[in-house]
Design a protein around this nucleic acid. Structure first.
Length: 550
RNA sequence: UGCCCGAUAGUGUAAUGGUAGCACAUGUGACUUUGACUCAUAUGGUCCAGGUUCAAAUCCUGGUCGGGCAACCA
Protein backbone atom coordinates (compact mmCIF):
# COMPACT_ATOMS: atom_id res chain seq x y z
CA UNK A 1 0.00 0.00 0.00
CA UNK A 2 1.01 3.59 -0.44
CA UNK A 3 2.17 5.76 2.39
CA UNK A 4 -0.15 8.61 1.59
CA UNK A 5 0.38 10.99 4.46
CA UNK A 6 0.63 14.73 4.69
CA UNK A 7 3.57 16.67 6.01
CA UNK A 8 3.19 18.49 9.31
CA UNK A 9 5.14 19.65 12.33
CA UNK A 10 6.10 16.13 13.35
CA UNK A 11 7.57 15.36 9.97
CA UNK A 12 9.39 18.66 9.98
CA UNK A 13 11.01 17.62 13.25
CA UNK A 14 11.87 14.21 11.82
CA UNK A 15 13.36 15.72 8.71
CA UNK A 16 15.47 18.06 10.81
CA UNK A 17 16.72 15.09 12.85
CA UNK A 18 17.52 13.22 9.66
CA UNK A 19 19.31 16.23 8.20
CA UNK A 20 21.42 16.77 11.30
CA UNK A 21 22.27 13.06 11.48
CA UNK A 22 20.71 12.84 14.92
CA UNK A 23 18.92 9.74 13.65
CA UNK A 24 19.51 7.46 10.74
CA UNK A 25 16.51 5.14 10.78
CA UNK A 26 13.13 6.37 11.91
CA UNK A 27 11.58 3.99 14.43
CA UNK A 28 8.09 4.67 15.74
CA UNK A 29 5.72 2.55 17.75
CA UNK A 30 2.02 2.03 18.20
CA UNK A 31 1.50 1.04 21.85
CA UNK A 32 -2.10 -0.01 22.55
CA UNK A 33 -3.17 -1.31 25.91
CA UNK A 34 -5.11 -4.53 25.32
CA UNK A 35 -8.11 -3.41 27.33
CA UNK A 36 -10.56 -2.44 24.61
CA UNK A 37 -11.25 -2.22 20.93
CA UNK A 38 -9.54 0.14 18.54
CA UNK A 39 -11.60 3.04 17.23
CA UNK A 40 -11.15 5.64 14.54
CA UNK A 41 -9.19 7.81 16.95
CA UNK A 42 -6.64 5.01 17.14
CA UNK A 43 -6.70 4.87 13.36
CA UNK A 44 -5.31 8.39 13.34
CA UNK A 45 -2.45 7.28 15.60
CA UNK A 46 -1.86 4.08 13.63
CA UNK A 47 -1.83 6.01 10.38
CA UNK A 48 0.63 8.47 11.90
CA UNK A 49 2.92 5.87 13.50
CA UNK A 50 2.98 3.35 10.67
CA UNK A 51 2.58 5.92 7.91
CA UNK A 52 5.52 7.96 9.18
CA UNK A 53 7.73 4.88 9.34
CA UNK A 54 6.74 3.98 5.79
CA UNK A 55 7.31 7.52 4.56
CA UNK A 56 10.86 7.63 5.90
CA UNK A 57 11.73 4.01 5.18
CA UNK A 58 11.93 3.21 8.84
CA UNK A 59 9.83 0.83 10.86
CA UNK A 60 6.98 0.87 13.32
CA UNK A 61 6.75 -1.48 16.28
CA UNK A 62 3.47 -2.86 17.49
CA UNK A 63 3.90 -2.99 21.25
CA UNK A 64 1.23 -4.05 23.65
CA UNK A 65 1.44 -1.82 26.68
CA UNK A 66 0.30 -4.53 29.05
CA UNK A 67 1.35 -3.17 32.41
CA UNK A 68 -2.01 -3.41 34.15
CA UNK A 69 -3.25 -7.03 34.31
CA UNK A 70 -6.42 -5.97 36.11
CA UNK A 71 -7.81 -4.34 32.98
CA UNK A 72 -6.33 -6.36 30.17
CA UNK A 73 -7.30 -9.47 28.28
CA UNK A 74 -5.79 -11.58 25.53
CA UNK A 75 -9.06 -11.34 23.62
CA UNK A 76 -8.31 -7.68 22.94
CA UNK A 77 -4.82 -8.57 21.74
CA UNK A 78 -6.26 -10.55 18.84
CA UNK A 79 -8.89 -7.97 18.00
CA UNK A 80 -6.33 -5.17 17.93
CA UNK A 81 -4.01 -7.06 15.61
CA UNK A 82 -6.87 -7.86 13.26
CA UNK A 83 -7.94 -4.24 13.14
CA UNK A 84 -4.46 -2.92 12.40
CA UNK A 85 -4.03 -5.42 9.58
CA UNK A 86 -7.44 -4.56 8.21
CA UNK A 87 -6.44 -0.90 8.15
CA UNK A 88 -3.58 -1.97 5.92
CA UNK A 89 -0.54 -1.84 8.19
CA UNK A 90 2.01 -4.47 9.02
CA UNK A 91 4.51 -4.63 11.85
CA UNK A 92 6.50 -7.48 10.32
CA UNK A 93 8.67 -9.10 13.01
CA UNK A 94 8.32 -6.14 15.30
CA UNK A 95 5.73 -7.30 17.77
CA UNK A 96 6.65 -6.46 21.36
CA UNK A 97 5.21 -6.62 24.85
CA UNK A 98 5.83 -4.26 27.71
CA UNK A 99 5.55 -7.36 29.87
CA UNK A 100 8.64 -8.92 28.33
CA UNK A 101 10.67 -6.07 29.81
CA UNK A 102 9.40 -6.55 33.37
CA UNK A 103 12.68 -8.02 34.65
CA UNK A 104 14.69 -5.21 33.12
CA UNK A 105 12.30 -2.67 34.52
CA UNK A 106 12.68 -4.11 38.00
CA UNK A 107 16.41 -3.81 37.68
CA UNK A 108 16.09 -0.21 36.63
CA UNK A 109 13.80 0.43 39.58
CA UNK A 110 16.48 -1.06 41.85
CA UNK A 111 19.07 1.22 40.29
CA UNK A 112 16.90 4.18 41.10
CA UNK A 113 16.54 3.01 44.71
CA UNK A 114 20.26 2.46 45.02
CA UNK A 115 21.11 5.92 43.86
CA UNK A 116 18.53 7.39 46.18
CA UNK A 117 16.15 8.39 43.42
CA UNK A 118 13.27 6.14 44.42
CA UNK A 119 11.77 4.99 47.70
CA UNK A 120 9.04 2.77 49.00
CA UNK A 121 6.05 4.65 50.32
CA UNK A 122 3.44 3.26 52.71
CA UNK A 123 1.02 6.14 52.46
CA UNK A 124 -2.49 5.28 51.39
CA UNK A 125 -3.79 6.91 48.25
CA UNK A 126 -5.75 9.42 50.27
CA UNK A 127 -2.83 10.17 52.55
CA UNK A 128 -0.51 10.76 49.63
CA UNK A 129 -3.07 13.04 48.07
CA UNK A 130 -2.74 15.39 51.00
CA UNK A 131 1.06 15.26 50.78
CA UNK A 132 1.02 15.95 47.07
CA UNK A 133 -0.85 19.21 47.48
CA UNK A 134 -2.78 20.97 44.75
CA UNK A 135 -1.68 22.77 41.59
CA UNK A 136 -1.61 26.12 43.29
CA UNK A 137 0.20 24.92 46.42
CA UNK A 138 3.38 22.89 46.83
CA UNK A 139 3.26 19.45 48.42
CA UNK A 140 5.10 18.09 51.47
CA UNK A 141 7.71 15.38 51.61
CA UNK A 142 6.23 11.96 52.45
CA UNK A 143 7.81 10.14 55.45
CA UNK A 144 9.11 7.37 53.17
CA UNK A 145 11.70 9.78 51.84
CA UNK A 146 13.60 9.29 55.09
CA UNK A 147 14.06 5.53 54.61
CA UNK A 148 17.57 4.24 54.02
CA UNK A 149 18.52 2.64 50.73
CA UNK A 150 18.79 -0.63 52.63
CA UNK A 151 15.27 -0.39 54.00
CA UNK A 152 13.94 0.53 50.58
CA UNK A 153 15.57 -2.46 48.91
CA UNK A 154 14.19 -4.77 51.59
CA UNK A 155 10.70 -3.34 51.21
CA UNK A 156 10.83 -3.53 47.43
CA UNK A 157 11.89 -7.18 47.71
CA UNK A 158 8.87 -7.86 49.88
CA UNK A 159 6.61 -6.11 47.37
CA UNK A 160 8.09 -8.26 44.63
CA UNK A 161 7.69 -11.52 46.58
CA UNK A 162 3.98 -10.99 46.88
CA UNK A 163 3.88 -10.92 50.68
CA UNK A 164 2.25 -7.53 50.76
CA UNK A 165 -1.37 -6.65 50.10
CA UNK A 166 -2.36 -4.49 47.17
CA UNK A 167 -2.47 -0.83 48.05
CA UNK A 168 -0.17 -1.06 51.06
CA UNK A 169 3.06 0.07 49.43
CA UNK A 170 4.22 1.69 46.23
CA UNK A 171 7.60 2.59 44.86
CA UNK A 172 7.94 6.30 44.18
CA UNK A 173 10.38 8.31 42.16
CA UNK A 174 12.02 10.87 44.40
CA UNK A 175 11.76 14.08 42.42
CA UNK A 176 10.27 17.31 43.74
CA UNK A 177 7.22 17.66 45.96
CA UNK A 178 7.10 21.38 45.18
CA UNK A 179 7.15 21.07 41.38
CA UNK A 180 4.47 23.08 39.57
CA UNK A 181 4.01 19.96 37.45
CA UNK A 182 2.04 17.51 39.59
CA UNK A 183 3.51 14.57 37.73
CA UNK A 184 6.91 15.43 39.15
CA UNK A 185 5.70 15.30 42.78
CA UNK A 186 7.12 11.86 43.62
CA UNK A 187 4.97 9.83 41.22
CA UNK A 188 4.32 6.15 41.91
CA UNK A 189 6.32 3.99 39.52
CA UNK A 190 5.54 0.50 40.84
CA UNK A 191 2.47 -0.87 42.53
CA UNK A 192 1.42 -4.22 43.94
CA UNK A 193 -1.12 -6.22 41.94
CA UNK A 194 -1.94 -9.86 42.52
CA UNK A 195 -3.94 -10.22 39.32
CA UNK A 196 -3.11 -12.87 36.73
CA UNK A 197 -1.41 -11.35 33.72
CA UNK A 198 -2.54 -12.51 30.26
CA UNK A 199 1.06 -12.92 29.15
CA UNK A 200 3.16 -13.55 32.26
CA UNK A 201 0.59 -15.37 34.38
CA UNK A 202 1.36 -15.32 38.12
CA UNK A 203 5.05 -14.50 37.77
CA UNK A 204 4.82 -10.95 39.05
CA UNK A 205 3.18 -9.29 41.99
CA UNK A 206 4.37 -5.81 41.17
CA UNK A 207 3.73 -3.96 37.95
CA UNK A 208 5.28 -0.76 36.63
CA UNK A 209 3.16 2.34 36.14
CA UNK A 210 2.80 3.86 32.69
CA UNK A 211 5.22 6.72 33.28
CA UNK A 212 8.01 4.42 34.39
CA UNK A 213 7.33 1.67 31.87
CA UNK A 214 6.67 3.58 28.70
CA UNK A 215 9.88 5.54 28.43
CA UNK A 216 11.92 2.42 29.20
CA UNK A 217 10.04 0.41 26.57
CA UNK A 218 10.70 3.13 24.01
CA UNK A 219 14.34 3.32 25.02
CA UNK A 220 14.95 -0.43 24.91
CA UNK A 221 13.45 -0.65 21.43
CA UNK A 222 15.45 2.30 20.18
CA UNK A 223 12.35 4.27 19.24
CA UNK A 224 13.47 7.55 17.68
CA UNK A 225 10.18 9.42 17.78
CA UNK A 226 7.56 8.49 20.33
CA UNK A 227 4.29 10.01 19.14
CA UNK A 228 1.44 10.34 21.59
CA UNK A 229 -1.61 12.45 22.30
CA UNK A 230 -1.69 15.88 23.92
CA UNK A 231 -2.59 14.78 27.43
CA UNK A 232 0.88 13.27 27.78
CA UNK A 233 2.53 16.61 27.24
CA UNK A 234 2.84 17.21 30.98
CA UNK A 235 4.29 13.72 31.37
CA UNK A 236 7.20 14.46 29.08
CA UNK A 237 9.45 15.94 31.83
CA UNK A 238 8.96 12.71 33.79
CA UNK A 239 9.67 10.58 30.71
CA UNK A 240 12.93 12.45 30.30
CA UNK A 241 13.78 12.49 34.02
CA UNK A 242 13.55 8.70 34.30
CA UNK A 243 15.73 7.98 31.29
CA UNK A 244 18.26 10.62 32.39
CA UNK A 245 18.45 9.17 35.92
CA UNK A 246 19.02 5.73 34.44
CA UNK A 247 21.44 7.10 31.89
CA UNK A 248 19.50 5.45 29.07
CA UNK A 249 18.98 6.41 25.45
CA UNK A 250 16.23 8.98 25.24
CA UNK A 251 13.71 8.96 22.38
CA UNK A 252 11.92 12.17 21.42
CA UNK A 253 8.33 12.27 22.62
CA UNK A 254 6.08 14.45 20.42
CA UNK A 255 2.44 15.09 21.19
CA UNK A 256 -0.44 15.65 18.78
CA UNK A 257 -4.19 16.24 19.14
CA UNK A 258 -6.68 13.40 19.26
CA UNK A 259 -9.23 12.92 16.52
CA UNK A 260 -12.74 13.99 17.43
CA UNK A 261 -15.69 13.57 15.09
CA UNK A 262 -19.14 15.06 15.41
CA UNK A 263 -21.95 12.76 16.60
CA UNK A 264 -19.43 10.25 17.90
CA UNK A 265 -17.84 9.45 21.23
CA UNK A 266 -14.30 8.18 21.13
CA UNK A 267 -13.55 7.48 24.79
CA UNK A 268 -12.83 3.82 25.52
CA UNK A 269 -14.72 4.10 28.77
CA UNK A 270 -17.81 5.54 27.10
CA UNK A 271 -17.70 2.92 24.35
CA UNK A 272 -17.44 0.20 26.99
CA UNK A 273 -20.47 1.68 28.72
CA UNK A 274 -22.51 1.65 25.50
CA UNK A 275 -21.60 -2.00 24.98
CA UNK A 276 -22.09 -3.15 28.57
CA UNK A 277 -25.37 -1.33 29.06
CA UNK A 278 -26.66 -2.75 25.77
CA UNK A 279 -27.24 0.54 24.01
CA UNK A 280 -25.56 -1.20 21.09
CA UNK A 281 -25.26 -4.87 20.19
CA UNK A 282 -21.52 -5.24 20.79
CA UNK A 283 -18.08 -3.80 20.04
CA UNK A 284 -18.67 -4.34 16.33
CA UNK A 285 -22.06 -2.66 16.26
CA UNK A 286 -22.09 -0.79 12.95
CA UNK A 287 -23.07 2.44 14.71
CA UNK A 288 -19.91 2.52 16.80
CA UNK A 289 -16.72 4.30 15.72
CA UNK A 290 -14.74 1.14 16.50
CA UNK A 291 -12.77 -0.20 13.57
CA UNK A 292 -14.64 -3.48 13.86
CA UNK A 293 -17.95 -1.63 13.86
CA UNK A 294 -17.03 0.48 10.88
CA UNK A 295 -15.79 -2.60 9.06
CA UNK A 296 -19.13 -4.31 9.66
CA UNK A 297 -20.91 -1.17 8.57
CA UNK A 298 -19.11 -1.35 5.23
CA UNK A 299 -16.58 1.46 5.62
CA UNK A 300 -13.30 0.77 3.83
CA UNK A 301 -9.73 0.95 5.12
CA UNK A 302 -8.89 3.24 2.21
CA UNK A 303 -11.60 5.68 3.25
CA UNK A 304 -10.39 5.74 6.84
CA UNK A 305 -6.78 6.25 5.80
CA UNK A 306 -7.82 9.05 3.48
CA UNK A 307 -9.69 10.72 6.30
CA UNK A 308 -6.58 10.54 8.48
CA UNK A 309 -4.54 12.14 5.73
CA UNK A 310 -7.10 14.89 5.26
CA UNK A 311 -7.42 15.84 8.91
CA UNK A 312 -3.65 16.01 9.16
CA UNK A 313 -1.88 16.34 12.44
CA UNK A 314 -1.69 19.41 14.67
CA UNK A 315 -1.68 20.37 18.32
CA UNK A 316 -5.11 21.95 18.02
CA UNK A 317 -7.96 20.09 19.70
CA UNK A 318 -10.33 19.94 16.75
CA UNK A 319 -13.76 18.56 16.02
CA UNK A 320 -14.00 17.09 12.55
CA UNK A 321 -17.39 17.06 10.88
CA UNK A 322 -18.74 13.57 10.29
CA UNK A 323 -19.57 14.71 6.76
CA UNK A 324 -15.88 14.60 5.94
CA UNK A 325 -15.63 10.95 6.99
CA UNK A 326 -18.77 10.20 4.99
CA UNK A 327 -17.34 11.97 1.95
CA UNK A 328 -14.21 9.77 2.17
CA UNK A 329 -16.35 6.64 2.42
CA UNK A 330 -18.58 7.62 -0.51
CA UNK A 331 -15.59 8.60 -2.57
CA UNK A 332 -14.04 5.16 -2.22
CA UNK A 333 -17.29 3.20 -2.41
CA UNK A 334 -18.38 5.05 -5.54
CA UNK A 335 -15.33 3.76 -7.33
CA UNK A 336 -15.19 0.27 -5.87
CA UNK A 337 -18.80 -0.88 -5.42
CA UNK A 338 -20.70 -2.80 -8.07
CA UNK A 339 -24.23 -1.48 -8.61
CA UNK A 340 -27.41 -3.39 -7.97
CA UNK A 341 -31.07 -2.63 -7.38
CA UNK A 342 -33.09 -2.87 -4.21
CA UNK A 343 -36.49 -1.49 -3.31
CA UNK A 344 -36.73 -0.54 0.33
CA UNK A 345 -40.36 0.52 0.53
CA UNK A 346 -42.11 -1.41 -2.25
CA UNK A 347 -45.33 -0.74 -4.11
CA UNK A 348 -46.35 -2.77 -7.12
CA UNK A 349 -46.21 -1.49 -10.66
CA UNK A 350 -48.30 -3.50 -13.12
CA UNK A 351 -47.41 -2.99 -16.76
CA UNK A 352 -50.68 -3.82 -18.42
CA UNK A 353 -49.47 -4.07 -22.00
CA UNK A 354 -46.61 -6.42 -21.12
CA UNK A 355 -47.22 -10.14 -21.82
CA UNK A 356 -48.46 -11.93 -18.77
CA UNK A 357 -46.09 -14.91 -18.64
CA UNK A 358 -43.01 -13.37 -20.19
CA UNK A 359 -39.65 -12.97 -18.48
CA UNK A 360 -36.80 -11.11 -20.13
CA UNK A 361 -33.22 -11.42 -18.92
CA UNK A 362 -31.83 -7.92 -19.18
CA UNK A 363 -28.11 -7.29 -19.26
CA UNK A 364 -27.18 -4.40 -17.01
CA UNK A 365 -23.75 -2.84 -16.38
CA UNK A 366 -22.37 -3.27 -12.89
CA UNK A 367 -20.70 0.12 -12.89
CA UNK A 368 -21.60 3.18 -14.93
CA UNK A 369 -18.04 4.47 -15.30
CA UNK A 370 -15.98 1.31 -15.19
CA UNK A 371 -16.56 -1.43 -17.74
CA UNK A 372 -14.23 -3.83 -15.97
CA UNK A 373 -17.02 -4.46 -13.45
CA UNK A 374 -18.83 -6.34 -16.22
CA UNK A 375 -22.54 -6.92 -16.48
CA UNK A 376 -25.20 -9.04 -14.83
CA UNK A 377 -28.60 -10.23 -15.94
CA UNK A 378 -31.72 -9.03 -14.21
CA UNK A 379 -35.13 -10.58 -14.86
CA UNK A 380 -37.93 -8.29 -16.01
CA UNK A 381 -41.62 -9.17 -15.87
CA UNK A 382 -45.06 -7.60 -16.01
CA UNK A 383 -45.22 -6.93 -12.28
CA UNK A 384 -42.42 -5.06 -10.58
CA UNK A 385 -41.80 -3.44 -7.25
CA UNK A 386 -40.83 0.18 -7.26
CA UNK A 387 -40.11 2.61 -4.44
CA UNK A 388 -43.18 4.14 -2.83
CA UNK A 389 -41.56 7.57 -2.93
CA UNK A 390 -41.13 7.30 -6.67
CA UNK A 391 -44.83 8.10 -7.10
CA UNK A 392 -46.61 11.34 -6.20
CA UNK A 393 -50.15 12.56 -6.71
CA UNK A 394 -50.37 15.84 -8.63
CA UNK A 395 -46.60 16.05 -8.83
CA UNK A 396 -44.94 19.32 -9.76
CA UNK A 397 -43.10 19.54 -13.03
CA UNK A 398 -39.70 19.13 -11.40
CA UNK A 399 -40.67 15.75 -9.96
CA UNK A 400 -38.90 13.38 -12.32
CA UNK A 401 -40.70 10.26 -11.20
CA UNK A 402 -44.20 8.79 -11.52
CA UNK A 403 -47.46 10.60 -11.38
CA UNK A 404 -50.46 9.66 -13.48
CA UNK A 405 -49.73 10.51 -17.09
CA UNK A 406 -45.97 10.80 -16.65
CA UNK A 407 -43.39 8.59 -18.35
CA UNK A 408 -40.35 7.29 -16.51
CA UNK A 409 -37.44 5.03 -17.44
CA UNK A 410 -37.06 1.79 -15.51
CA UNK A 411 -33.32 1.53 -15.05
CA UNK A 412 -31.79 -0.75 -17.67
CA UNK A 413 -35.24 -1.70 -19.01
CA UNK A 414 -38.11 0.15 -20.63
CA UNK A 415 -39.86 3.48 -20.45
CA UNK A 416 -43.21 3.18 -18.73
CA UNK A 417 -46.05 5.64 -18.58
CA UNK A 418 -48.19 5.60 -15.45
CA UNK A 419 -51.85 5.33 -16.42
CA UNK A 420 -53.63 5.02 -13.09
CA UNK A 421 -53.16 4.46 -9.41
CA UNK A 422 -55.02 2.14 -7.06
CA UNK A 423 -55.55 3.20 -3.45
CA UNK A 424 -57.12 1.61 -0.39
CA UNK A 425 -59.86 3.13 1.75
CA UNK A 426 -57.30 5.22 3.66
CA UNK A 427 -56.04 6.71 0.44
CA UNK A 428 -52.79 4.77 0.61
CA UNK A 429 -51.34 3.74 -2.72
CA UNK A 430 -51.58 -0.02 -3.25
CA UNK A 431 -50.49 -0.34 -6.85
CA UNK A 432 -49.58 1.61 -9.94
CA UNK A 433 -50.70 0.66 -13.43
CA UNK A 434 -48.90 1.60 -16.60
CA UNK A 435 -47.93 0.80 -20.17
CA UNK A 436 -44.43 0.28 -21.50
CA UNK A 437 -42.94 1.25 -24.82
CA UNK A 438 -41.40 -1.93 -26.31
CA UNK A 439 -39.11 0.19 -28.50
CA UNK A 440 -37.25 1.65 -25.54
CA UNK A 441 -35.40 -1.37 -24.19
CA UNK A 442 -32.00 0.03 -23.38
CA UNK A 443 -32.43 2.98 -25.72
CA UNK A 444 -34.16 6.34 -25.74
CA UNK A 445 -37.54 6.69 -27.45
CA UNK A 446 -37.19 6.71 -31.22
CA UNK A 447 -39.50 9.68 -31.63
CA UNK A 448 -37.14 11.86 -29.66
CA UNK A 449 -39.46 12.56 -26.73
CA UNK A 450 -37.66 13.26 -23.46
CA UNK A 451 -38.01 10.88 -20.55
CA UNK A 452 -36.45 12.73 -17.65
CA UNK A 453 -36.55 10.30 -14.78
CA UNK A 454 -35.00 6.92 -14.18
CA UNK A 455 -36.05 4.75 -11.27
CA UNK A 456 -35.02 1.34 -9.95
CA UNK A 457 -37.28 -1.69 -9.87
CA UNK A 458 -37.38 -5.40 -9.00
CA UNK A 459 -39.36 -8.09 -10.79
CA UNK A 460 -41.99 -9.14 -8.25
CA UNK A 461 -41.79 -12.80 -9.21
CA UNK A 462 -38.03 -12.91 -8.73
CA UNK A 463 -37.53 -10.54 -5.83
CA UNK A 464 -35.26 -11.67 -3.04
CA UNK A 465 -36.67 -10.86 0.38
CA UNK A 466 -34.10 -9.32 2.63
CA UNK A 467 -33.66 -7.80 6.03
CA UNK A 468 -32.07 -4.40 5.78
CA UNK A 469 -30.60 -2.54 8.70
CA UNK A 470 -30.70 1.18 8.23
CA UNK A 471 -28.10 2.89 10.38
CA UNK A 472 -28.02 6.52 11.27
CA UNK A 473 -25.79 8.55 13.57
CA UNK A 474 -25.73 7.20 17.13
CA UNK A 475 -26.19 10.58 18.78
CA UNK A 476 -28.45 13.52 18.11
CA UNK A 477 -25.95 16.17 19.15
CA UNK A 478 -22.61 17.06 17.58
CA UNK A 479 -20.70 16.64 20.80
CA UNK A 480 -22.56 14.38 23.25
CA UNK A 481 -19.85 14.88 25.87
CA UNK A 482 -19.89 18.69 25.79
CA UNK A 483 -22.69 19.11 28.31
CA UNK A 484 -21.10 18.05 31.59
CA UNK A 485 -24.39 18.15 33.46
CA UNK A 486 -26.16 15.63 31.21
CA UNK A 487 -25.29 11.97 30.84
CA UNK A 488 -24.19 11.42 27.23
CA UNK A 489 -26.59 8.50 26.83
CA UNK A 490 -29.40 11.07 27.01
CA UNK A 491 -28.33 12.17 23.55
CA UNK A 492 -28.57 8.73 21.97
CA UNK A 493 -30.53 8.77 18.73
CA UNK A 494 -33.60 6.51 19.18
CA UNK A 495 -33.70 5.96 15.41
CA UNK A 496 -30.06 5.04 14.96
CA UNK A 497 -31.14 1.56 13.84
CA UNK A 498 -34.22 0.80 11.83
CA UNK A 499 -34.75 -2.72 10.52
CA UNK A 500 -36.92 -3.16 7.45
CA UNK A 501 -37.88 -5.86 4.98
CA UNK A 502 -36.97 -5.05 1.39
CA UNK A 503 -37.03 -6.50 -2.11
CA UNK A 504 -33.67 -7.15 -3.76
CA UNK A 505 -32.72 -8.17 -7.24
CA UNK A 506 -32.07 -11.95 -7.24
CA UNK A 507 -28.33 -11.69 -7.95
CA UNK A 508 -27.84 -10.29 -4.45
CA UNK A 509 -28.87 -13.55 -2.82
CA UNK A 510 -25.47 -14.87 -3.88
CA UNK A 511 -23.57 -12.15 -2.02
CA UNK A 512 -21.07 -13.18 0.62
CA UNK A 513 -20.82 -11.52 4.04
CA UNK A 514 -18.99 -8.15 3.83
CA UNK A 515 -19.63 -7.80 0.07
CA UNK A 516 -20.34 -4.18 -0.75
CA UNK A 517 -22.77 -2.74 -3.28
CA UNK A 518 -24.31 0.48 -4.29
CA UNK A 519 -28.05 0.03 -4.46
CA UNK A 520 -28.68 2.57 -7.15
CA UNK A 521 -30.45 5.73 -6.03
CA UNK A 522 -30.64 4.36 -2.49
CA UNK A 523 -27.19 4.13 -0.98
CA UNK A 524 -24.20 1.96 -0.19
CA UNK A 525 -24.87 -1.37 1.47
CA UNK A 526 -22.88 -4.37 2.56
CA UNK A 527 -23.87 -7.89 3.43
CA UNK A 528 -23.79 -8.32 7.19
CA UNK A 529 -21.65 -10.94 8.87
CA UNK A 530 -24.93 -12.66 9.86
CA UNK A 531 -25.90 -12.86 6.20
CA UNK A 532 -26.35 -16.43 4.89
CA UNK A 533 -27.75 -18.08 1.80
CA UNK A 534 -30.96 -18.69 3.75
CA UNK A 535 -31.29 -15.26 5.28
CA UNK A 536 -30.29 -12.19 3.32
CA UNK A 537 -29.15 -9.35 5.53
CA UNK A 538 -27.68 -6.07 4.39
CA UNK A 539 -26.40 -3.11 6.36
CA UNK A 540 -26.76 0.36 5.02
CA UNK A 541 -23.30 1.87 5.06
CA UNK A 542 -24.42 5.33 3.96
CA UNK A 543 -27.06 6.92 1.82
CA UNK A 544 -26.02 8.52 -1.42
CA UNK A 545 -25.08 12.15 -1.06
CA UNK A 546 -28.28 13.92 -0.21
CA UNK A 547 -29.61 15.87 -3.14
CA UNK A 548 -32.65 18.05 -2.87
CA UNK A 549 -35.54 15.89 -3.92
CA UNK A 550 -38.81 17.53 -4.74
C1' U B 1 -6.19 31.07 41.25
C1' G B 2 -0.15 27.15 39.81
C1' C B 3 2.03 24.80 35.45
C1' C B 4 1.80 23.17 30.24
C1' C B 5 -0.36 23.64 25.32
C1' G B 6 -3.19 25.93 21.59
C1' A B 7 -6.14 29.78 18.35
C1' U B 8 -6.31 30.91 9.92
C1' A B 9 -13.73 30.82 6.05
C1' G B 10 -19.25 26.90 9.14
C1' U B 11 -15.51 22.52 9.62
C1' G B 12 -10.49 20.39 8.84
C1' U B 13 -5.99 22.22 7.17
C1' A B 14 -1.74 25.06 3.96
C1' A B 15 1.13 29.42 3.61
C1' U B 16 8.02 28.75 7.81
C1' G B 17 8.76 37.75 7.17
C1' G B 18 6.76 38.95 0.75
C1' U B 19 -0.30 37.86 -3.79
C1' A B 20 -4.05 34.16 2.56
C1' G B 21 -4.60 28.75 -0.87
C1' C B 22 -6.89 23.65 -0.73
C1' A B 23 -10.58 20.16 0.88
C1' C B 24 -15.36 19.06 3.23
C1' A B 25 -19.97 21.57 3.94
C1' U B 26 -23.37 25.31 1.70
C1' G B 27 -25.74 28.20 -2.75
C1' U B 28 -26.27 28.34 -8.22
C1' G B 29 -25.72 26.15 -13.05
C1' A B 30 -24.21 22.15 -16.79
C1' C B 31 -24.21 16.91 -17.83
C1' U B 32 -26.73 12.38 -16.67
C1' U B 33 -30.62 5.56 -18.36
C1' U B 34 -28.58 6.56 -10.44
C1' G B 35 -31.93 13.80 -8.39
C1' A B 36 -25.37 9.51 -7.67
C1' C B 37 -20.70 10.47 -10.10
C1' U B 38 -18.32 14.40 -12.93
C1' C B 39 -17.66 19.55 -14.32
C1' A B 40 -18.23 24.92 -13.75
C1' U B 41 -19.25 28.85 -10.46
C1' A B 42 -20.43 31.69 -5.94
C1' U B 43 -20.47 32.75 -0.65
C1' G B 44 -17.11 33.01 3.25
C1' G B 45 -11.17 33.64 7.07
C1' U B 46 -5.86 35.24 10.00
C1' C B 47 -9.05 35.91 18.42
C1' C B 48 -8.05 41.20 20.38
C1' A B 49 -4.63 45.40 21.42
C1' G B 50 0.03 47.33 21.05
C1' G B 51 5.19 46.85 19.17
C1' U B 52 9.44 45.44 15.59
C1' U B 53 9.78 45.85 10.05
C1' C B 54 9.70 48.72 3.63
C1' A B 55 6.49 44.41 4.63
C1' A B 56 3.41 40.32 10.04
C1' A B 57 -1.19 34.78 9.80
C1' U B 58 4.11 34.26 10.71
C1' C B 59 8.57 37.68 15.25
C1' C B 60 7.95 40.35 20.42
C1' U B 61 4.73 42.10 24.68
C1' G B 62 0.10 42.13 27.05
C1' G B 63 -4.82 40.43 27.02
C1' U B 64 -9.12 37.19 25.59
C1' C B 65 -10.95 32.52 24.70
C1' G B 66 -10.33 27.11 24.52
C1' G B 67 -7.95 22.43 26.06
C1' G B 68 -4.91 19.51 29.45
C1' C B 69 -2.68 18.29 34.44
C1' A B 70 -4.11 16.85 41.35
C1' A B 71 -5.49 7.04 39.35
C1' C B 72 -1.63 2.66 43.16
C1' C B 73 -5.26 3.94 34.59
C1' A B 74 -2.86 4.31 29.92
Amino acid sequence: MTAEISTHFIHEKIEADLASNKTETIITRFPPEPNGYLHIGHAKAIHLDFGTALKYNGRCHLRFDDTNPAAEDVHYVHAIQEDIRWLGYDWGDHLYWASSYFDQMENYARQLIEKGSAYVCNLSQDEFKSYRGVPTEPGREPPGRALSIHENIALFDQMKKGDLAEGTYVLRARIDMTSPNLHMRDPAIYRIKHAKHHHTGDTYHIYPMYDFAHCIEDSIEGITHSLCTLEFEVHRPLYEWILNELNLYRPQQIEFARLNITYMVMSKRKLLQLVEENYVTGWDDPRLPTLSGMRRRGFTPTAIRNLCTQVGCTKFESLTEIERLEACVRDDLNETSPRAMAVLDPIKLIIENYPENQTEELKIANHPQNESFGTRTVPFTRECYIEREDYMDDAPNKFKRFTVGREVRLRGAYCVICTRVEKNADGKVIALYGNYDPETRGVNPLDGRKVRGTIHWISAAHACDAEIRLYDRLFTTENPLADKTTEFTEFLNPDSLQTIQAKLEPSLAKAAPADRFQFERVGYFCADRDHTSEKTIFNRTLTLRAAKKI
